[in-house]
Nucleic acid binder design. Structure first.
Lengths: 198, 198
DNA sequence: TCACGATGTCAACAGACGTTGGCCAACAAC
DNA sequence: GTTGTTGGCCAACGTCTGTTGACATCGTGA
């Protein structure tokens, strides 16, 4: 029944398994989408990075749009802050956010999402979905319940996404010059203000 | 020497003056770049909006890239806050920023710039230039001089651009639901925090 | 009247793109 | 060995793109 190797390590490599190729394509796609956005990324380019022919990309993912869709899968792994002292929450969010952006240089997922969401409706919709399912609940857990909780969550998101925008996309020199510690120190009071004002 | 009409108003209009055509092209280009970004905007599309042939766009602007460059010219008209009481500055910045984005629906300049700057290096460079020449000095005028003034200016920019990002680009529902007054109320303390912390 | 410059159209090129279908070679099962 | 399946390449399609150059039209000044 099964055709894949039993030991999973593929001792001598006669040919690549389709799963490995699919993963290679996806990794190449993420990298290209992250650096060039949706429009300037070409299937031929992705295929070249993955060391195969462009038609293989079509076979495995159906179309460029479906490949893009597959590249957008993201779990932010936001921390649960229900048991964190309120005055520590902003710094924790900032630290987690920077870690997610700078921790693993091979993980371009957030860059793909943000860069694409600005010009691509499909990616923007995905972003709204991630906000509603992951960000808003996580921020709400740090707030006294109230009717303006979603608004505060949105403004905290604006602050963090604005940070990513100026630092990783626009690369404003002063934003690049800051260390994560300095950002935490200067920016945490601003998050606190949004979370606690009134 | 001069071939243009003396009275400048072109009383009866035999044909369009080149200046009018250039302006029509530029307006069409701004609108398309704002809505679709650089890559998906086509010269043929811009020309159609302006009611002329694509080759005219080339004649007047040389290339798509130069047309784009021309569409990026922006003056933020930031207020001078040197004589404004410090506790009023954040609300003033927010108000001015929202006015600039929502005041004139035919003025897409900021949308062009932000949407393009995320995927286009040329636009990102322009953004850095605008930050350095217009934003940083304006914010610095609201601060006691110090070595971290540029960093604070960058973080203020991050907050305002993040607001534009979530509200006008990503269109997060809670960010869209807020009135300018509510934004001012909820967000001004956050700007204050960045400007005055420590 | 005639020529000329300015405004504009039209047709085409050359390259890149997403996508398709046919073919090949290696492996597994019988 | 034969056969079917799997991973992969190749050539081509139709379309769209930026860009170019030849040609038309019209108002104006000599």
């Amino acid at each position: 029944m099964k055709t894949e190797a039993v030991d999973g390590t593929a001792g001598d490599r006669p040919r690549r398994t389709s799963e490995a190729t699919k993963a290679a394509i996806l990794a190449a796609a993420r990298s290209r989408f992250a650096e060039q956005g949706y429009e300037r990324t070409t299937i031929r380019g992705v295929a070249a990075d993955a060391g195969i022919d462009a038609s293989m990309v079509m076979r495995y993912f159906g179309s460029k749009e479906q490949l893009f869709e597959a590249a957008l899968a993201i779990d932010l792994h936001l921390p649960d802050v229900r048991d964190v002292p309120p005055d520590r929450v902003p710094a924790l969010f900032i630290r987690h956010f920077l870690d997610r952006w700078e921790g693993d240089p091979t993980d371009d997922a957030l860059l793909v999402l943000l860069r694409s969401a600005v010009t691509n409706d499909q990616a923007a919709a995905r972003m709204r979905d991630i906000f509603a399912r992951q960000v808003a609940p996580a921020v709400a857990a740090a707030l006294p319940p109230g009717p303006d909780a979603p608004a505060r969550a949105a403004l905290v998101s604006a602050q963090l996404l604005g940070l990513a925008l100026t630092r990783y996309l626009l690369r404003l020199p002063p934003a690049l010059a800051l260390t994560p510690e300095q950002i935490e120190e200067l920016y945490a009071p601003a998050l606190t203000a949004v979370l606690t004002s009134r």
